[in-house]
Design a protein around this nucleic acid. Structure first.
Length: 309
RNA sequence: GGGGAGAUACCAAAGCGGCCAACUGGGGCAGACUGUAACUCUGCUGACUUAUGUCUUCGUAGGUUCGAAUCCUGCUCUCCCCA
């Protein structure tokens, strides 16, 4: 019962996770660990809605602007790094706040990623080329041979998943299904999961407004600066990739804005789908500050009577 | 006032006698997803309901036909051209 507590604030993009997480961190006198796979890149600020300088002043933040878009990073590394940071915070504080909408990063902390080999750029390229030259059917045949178990369960329409499985099998020298364990990893802290959600029209409206705000603050310029790096995975991101088509004269500027809004809405939906599966999350409307804080002070009572939905 | 074109599901837009509950796109909804994940992939989108089921739809009211979104007539509305 004396374990430290990781307070997690999750939810779709644009609900207001940042503001809440800072309030919570201030209240408990602790720091915010960002679980956002794009705010981690320092060149992407406007389009990823990083906390403002004032907000960053209020409370220590981790994983904001830590990397360059040219650096490779993944959820496995995030798990390792985030746990290390949490441990450091817990050395002299009983609480920490984890805030983010990157499903897989949150999962990495909650459940943990299984061991897997590193994929060298060379191998990745090789597999990509095979796919380009011979097609998905060919890659499926390879996977079937390397790992019949995984072959049976992959989404065979999904090239990315298939290719990645092939990569892992080759790099590991054994079936990738061998590497997957079904249990969650043990963590030496408790977790309190707060989900933020609001009625869909309200959420979509908030997203639209935020995109307009990004436009006003110079998103186009930011994207233009990053255009040379478009091939890096970091730039395969809503709010940036749409611009690249515009820079190449493929679409109009109005269309860019429309697409960013739409893709943000879709992203928000995917996040909700993902987080809904986690039955340990207690959901709140972001305006329910009193309820949220009383839940944080006394989570057991809330769990007893059921909070949120 | 005269002539012409058109009215299709949330929007746009195909269909022009049966294979149509109706192509396609947009928008939306739902879901999958353990090392690229703001990625990548899937399903649904008339209702009831989930089945190779029933019912109600293609401006509206009638008609022709075994059978109509598709043909004919009246009406309503929209658009374009000439006055």
């Amino acid at each position: 019962m004396d374990k430290p507590v990781l307070i997690m604030v999750v939810g779709p993009t644009g609900v207001g996770k940042t503001a809440l997480s800072i309030e919570i961190a201030e209240y408990f006198g602790t720091a915010v660990i960002s679980a956002d796979s794009r705010q981690i890149y320092r060149e992407m600020r406007i389009g990823t809605a990083v906390p403002s300088p004032e907000e960053l002043e209020r409370v220590p933040h981790y994983f904001i602007g830590k990397l360059s878009v040219k650096e490779y990073y993944n959820s496995w590394e995030y798990e390792r790094d985030a746990l290390a940071v949490a441990e450091r915070i817990f050395r002299n504080r009983p609480y920490a706040v984890l805030c983010g909408g990157s499903m897989m990063y949150v999962d990495a902390v909650c459940r943990g990623m299984d061991e897997a080999p590193d994929i060298s750029p060379g191998l990745r390229e090789e597999v990509c080329r095979e796919y380009a030259d011979y097609g998905l059917e060919h890659m499926l045949a390879i996977l079937k041979e390397l790992d019949p178990v995984f072959y049976a369960e992959v989404d065979r329409n999904n090239p990315k998943r298939v290719l990645h499985a092939v990569e892992i099998c080759r790099a590991a020298g054994r079936p990738c299904s061998d590497l997957r364990k079904k249990e969650k990893k043990k963590r030496d802290f408790d977790m309190l999961r707060i989900g933020l959600d609001m009625p869909r029209p309200e959420l979509y409206d908030s997203i639209d407004k935020r995109v307009d705000d990004m436009m006003a603050r110079g998103l186009e310029e930011e994207a233009r600066r990053l255009y040379p790096f478009r091939a890096f995975n970091a730039l395969n991101t809503v709010g940036y990739k749409e611009w690249f088509d515009y820079f190449e004269g493929k679409i109009e500027k109005e269309e860019v804005v429309r697409l960013i809004k739409r893709n943000s809405r879709r992203y928000a939906k995917k996040q909700l789908t993902w987080f809904r599966k986690d039955k340990d999350i207690t959901w709140f409307h972001p305006d329910m500050r009193e309820e949220i804080f009383s839940y944080l002070r006394c989570p057991k009572v809330w769990n007893l009577y059921g909070a949120g939905d």
